[in-house]
Design a protein around this nucleic acid. Structure first.
Lengths: 212, 212
DNA sequence: CCTACCGATCGGTAGG
DNA sequence: CCTACCGATCGGTAGG
């Protein structure tokens, strides 16, 4: 069963540590998007990665840290897959449209196998107490504020009716994004995303100033 | 520690079984609305109810059955707290308004401590495989069909523009209900429900025939 | 990155 | 409804 006393480093594909760390977090994001952060166990990750439990454990030294790093890794995926394409659009209404479309596309493409990672976290931790609830709430507030800023910029450019309530419009854009994620995942039907797409188009259309 | 050999039934408040069964399901719904069905463990229920693990277990004989009965109990609560007041309204647009308001009120009143029980289930099981996913998907389809019927009735009564796409309108009513639930729970702020209330009011207003 | 543990808890069973 | 168990798995530690 051993690799021989003269060849102690010939164990099958010994990684350099950093690669393994990334591979663990990839698998952790996948599992958590489907089953939630609460179902993420070190033993399960080890089994699915063909490692020993304490091999996985050594990378994080606590379950809390594994959970925090998994959330951080998912934020980087969200930044790359949703925020980056949105920020490539010109400021104003176009950027709002681009943000919504980038989110719907990220759901549709199945970037995470269980749908939007953060939509799952929202429902999993909305009613709990503790640091994970607080992280989810902070992310949520951050996005709401970002959308609020996009709306104010679009107003300044005269692309959104100045009478419109920013918080209300942000809510009315967010709601179809969220529901499109849940229903397309539940029904294994990316086509449900089109219901969200149409709702967004109409809401944005109504937000335009009457004169334009 | 015993109650004495001559008084074997004097154990503290021995219930008749049915009462205990109901009490277990009440606690199970509370826990599941906050932490999910997956976090419902027999040991935890026993601890919180001051019973032995196998005392709880004996009522269900498997975890699966405990989960199924918990969902069924929650359906009865939903029927009583949301469907019944909705069905008390006259058919047509009024009933659609009543249904949406009954849902928002059920969230606002905190009927379940973790917000809408079924919204939590939706996110918990949308991406999984198995009987619980299928139950959630069936409930979801059932409500979508019910709202579809309400919309068709309202069209027949001339209270909704006949041009309106039923599935699209159902989606646009459902989305703010769902998001109002998550955000009011996340932010511990029942006031967020008013964002949903206003979105519903405006969506219903737009659905009216142009002539009315 | 591994083996070999630890105490706690899981779902479930036996027997009353 | 209880005590007393079972094997499996949990998060985590010791030591290499």
């Amino acid at each position: 069963m051993r690799n021989g006393i003269n060849n102690p480093r010939a164990a099958p594909r010994r990684s350099d540590g950093a690669e393994t760390h990334v591979a663990i977090l990839e698998k952790a994001m996948e599992l958590a998007s489907v089953e939630g952060l609460g179902s993420l166990t070190i033993g399960r990750l080890a089994r699915e990665l063909g490692m020993s439990k304490s091999g996985v454990f050594a990378h994080f030294r606590s379950k809390q840290r594994l959970q925090r790093e998994t959330i951080e890794a998912a934020r980087r995926v969200f930044a790359r897959e949703v925020m980056r394409p949105a920020l490539a659009a010109p400021e104003g209404l176009s950027r709002i449209e681009a943000f919504c479309e980038a989110y719907l596309s990220y759901v549709e493409r199945g970037v995470f196998p269980g749908g939007c990672f953060f939509a799952h976290m929202l429902a999993e931790f909305d009613a709990r107490e503790g640091p994970l609830h607080d992280e989810v709430a902070a992310d949520q507030r951050g996005w709401a504020e970002m959308v609020g800023r996009l709306i104010r910029v679009a107003k300044k450019k005269g692309e959104i009716d100045p009478e419109i309530d920013e918080a209300q419009l942000a809510f009315e854009l967010y709601a179809p994004l969220e529901l499109a994620n849940y229903l397309s995942t539940l029904n294994r039907d990316p086509g449900m995303v089109d219901l969200g797409r149409r709702a967004i188009r109409e809401t944005i259309g109504r937000a335009r100033p009457a004169s334009s």
